[in-house]
Amino acid sequence: MSSQHAPLPVALVSLGVVLLLSTPANAIGGGGTYGKAKGTQLSASARQSRIKVTRVSGPTGGEQGTVSSTDVNWKPPPCWYEPVFSPAQLKDFAENNGDGDVGLRDGWYGSKLWTDHFRDEKDASSIFTTPATVKGYKNYNLGKDGYFWRGVAPDAGSLDDTSLCSRLMFWVDAGKIPDVPNAPTPKTLAEYAYNKIKVPSTSIEVKPTAKSTVNLPSWVWLDKGTFKEVKVRAELPDTGLWAETTAKPVALHLDPGTPDAETYPSSGNCTINEDGSIGTPYEKGDGDRTPPCGITYLRASNGTPYHLKASITWQITWKGSDGSGGDLPDGIFDTTQDMNVQEIQSVNR
């Protein structure tokens, strides 16, 4: 019985050559990092992507966080294929370690399985993939220009997700993207970068800041330049693929934290101006005016503050290395601050 078709007998376990089946690779792969070649760290885990995300523009200081998609049904792609090893890197990995994921749902442990298939031309089999049997390679394809590719799923949440990219590691000539389902595209990189965008927290100015008064409008604003677009670039090494994903703040939504309140505008949506400002700062004598962005509380908080939630909507767009581009679902980032509301008989403005 071939060790590539079923677990080895117990008597052979001491040789360190074991193939585990019917379990996703992430559950049996070590997830560690093994081997080095030409200064590049190589991953043995199919849960680790090589995509590099860097910030191109946007605020870098202060409290930041990631946005949540306004489309609850939208998710980044669960998996895709990436180049993992050059021939020399695979030779080093196979002969000096050999513990890791040869596919998203196949983990090979011990050097023999790797050397049998990638050095000695022996066919390999998997119950998870199509084709189920893969022709072996001669001497790791040394002398050829290209990479061995494997599926990755850094955020996959189910076995169904990993089955989409479960082919055993395969060869692709340099400068080419494999013609297979779930091959990476610029849009793949843009969607991957969606959850890597860091936007500034929503800290709004309210007048008065500590206490509001029943039936007296509270003005809400943000000074100009507070919110600027954030752009990140995602690149997949050794493919020439990249995408830039941009988040632009477009609106502030106010949720007063109680039904006993009125918002301005009535929708609670305050537009973000081109200069990054929101609303108008409160000035002495504005107490009788209706603010362009604000809240009037209709009942005192009576010792338990209302939780004013301020949510910024970020418009997400992208462009890619092949000239493609488009929109992704808007993102939301919100913060909450306490509002103590008092009731007094008269107000001097």
Rank of each mutant, 00 (worst) to 15 (best):
W114Y: 13
D179G: 05
D179H: 07
V56C: 01
A183H: 08
L164N: 11
P184R: 00
Y147I: 03
K207N: 12
S126D: 05
L168N: 11
Q342C: 06
K36T: 14
K135V: 15
W314H: 08
T40Y: 10
T23V: 15
G107C: 08
D179C: 04
A153K: 01
E95N: 15
L328H: 11
P291G: 03
C293Q: 02
T239G: 00
R119H: 14
D120I: 04
A11F: 14
L236R: 03
Y109C: 09
T317G: 03
P305T: 08
S125D: 09
P281G: 10
E229C: 01
T115K: 10
D71S: 15
Y34D: 10
V18M: 15
C165L: 04
S126W: 01
A94L: 13
D223H: 06
Q48A: 09
D286L: 06
D255Q: 05
D99E: 10
T23P: 01
Y264H: 05
T280R: 11
R50L: 11
P184F: 00
N195W: 09
A46L: 02
G136K: 08
I197H: 00
V230N: 00
A210E: 11
K187L: 10
P131D: 08
Y140M: 13
K144V: 05
G303L: 00
T335L: 01
S277E: 02
A190F: 02
S267V: 10
N97K: 13
I177S: 03
N215K: 13
D155I: 11
V10W: 14
P291T: 06
V230L: 01
F85E: 03
W74P: 13
Y109H: 15
F227W: 06
K91P: 04
V220S: 04
